[in-house]
Design a protein around this nucleic acid. Structure first.
Lengths: 214, 214
DNA sequence: TAGATTGTTAATCGATTAACAATC
DNA sequence: TAGATTGTTAATCGATTAACAATC
């Protein structure tokens, strides 16, 4: 898995789409596919597909294309998905609970080790098999079962405070589902934002742009 | 609101961040801010901020900066957020219900006019004030209250089928929350994807990349 | 006025696309 | 072998950054 210098964020953001396509093709019984076909299905150019894939080594064969199963597992390895990651959910309200029950963490190789919430009715119980603790137990839980990724699904008003707490606990990564820019000072913790409103606003922009009158 | 040619997708994707910052600054009582300060807070360059903002006209004043309230409302207008949009939710399961109850559509100028689900127990009732219909009522509802955006929050297996139905009903935009690439043939409908797994995979990549041993 | 900061033009940087020899 | 398709280099395109005159 030789790398050719740092890989651009654009390329990284496309890897999940390749992986998803390979899984679909695999389910449909295909065993190989060309860069041209990948490009056509995903709406990109064959050049771009090959440029992306060769960042991590040579996965294809001239005259044949890419092995579907091989490409899938190679890309999963590149993204670190072959390794199981421990996940904790900070905020077991509506969004947190929904994720916990429906995101199929387990089958994607994530292990949900704990949820944290201030709701007294939840603490000490278990949600979908995951124990719920008070946030003050974060360090204690992390000491026993190291948390790799903390899902931040608390209300907007608590987001920054909780993020600081996660940073202080030295949990390495935050998956931020609140509509808040966390702006953490130290760049020790890796943050990925899923801003629902940003996405909806983007859609609204393109919708308005397409209006005949405007 | 003179435009200078087509605006890049990169610029568009940054507009919600400017809007959010302006709302925060407004709440904190600031009435103006320079491109340099915006850049520092959002982690970009002053040049980029000015390049982005001048795409839509001149919102700033030399020696002073940008008026917080003015910039916010101008950018909202650019994104079409000054206009109310009718939203329907396709799939009132866990994710759909959570969105319906917690996304604060109303205060962001979206009006949720209907939800659709095949669950007999929900049909005919109302969820958080929104009536629930069977999906076969989509055309009928759309005929009476034109739907601008359909939120797709059904299970992965039903995603493509529902998307086709939405397209057939001539609803102009789909906000796709399923982990499925819809790949609609006709490019009449505008699709914005919110792929939870893509985002989580991206985070996992950067987490793995940061591991000392790798 | 002097200092600050914009809007804009030019320079740089990076990402995408095109082309093609290598080769399965 | 002939056809197909990769990996890679070069060309193009677009986005970001730098610089600075205009001006509040």
């Amino acid at each position: 898995m030789k790398r050719k210098g740092p890989t651009s964020a654009n390329t990284i953001s496309r890897l999940p789409k390749y992986i998803r396509l390979m899984e679909e093709l695999e389910a449909q019984g295909f065993d190989h596919i060309s860069s041209g076909s990948i490009a056509r299905i995903l709406g990109m150019t064959a050049s771009q597909v090959r440029q992306d894939l060769t960042q991590f080594g040579s996965y294809g064969a001239q005259g044949y294309g890419y092995n579907v199963e091989g490409l899938k597992s190679n890309l999963k390895r590149v993204m670190g998905l072959h390794r199981q990651h421990n996940v904790a959910i900070m905020g077991a309200g509506s969004i947190g609970k929904t994720l916990l029950c429906h995101m199929r963490f387990q089958e994607n190789n994530y292990h949900v080790v704990a949820a944290f919430d201030t709701n007294e009715e939840l603490i000490g119980k278990s949600l979908n098999g995951t124990p719920v603790y008070h946030p003050c137990q974060l360090d204690a839980v992390h000491a026993i079962t190291p948390i790799d990724i903390c899902v931040l699904s608390v209300s907007a008003e608590h987001a920054k405070m909780c993020a600081r707490q996660i940073e202080k606990a030295e949990i390495p990564a935050i998956w931020n589902l609140t509509n808040v820019d966390l702006a953490l000072k130290g760049n020790t913790v890796i943050v990925e934002n899923m801003h629902f409103l940003d996405s909806l606003f983007g859609l609204t922009y393109y919708l308005e742009e397409s209006r005949p009158g405007v």
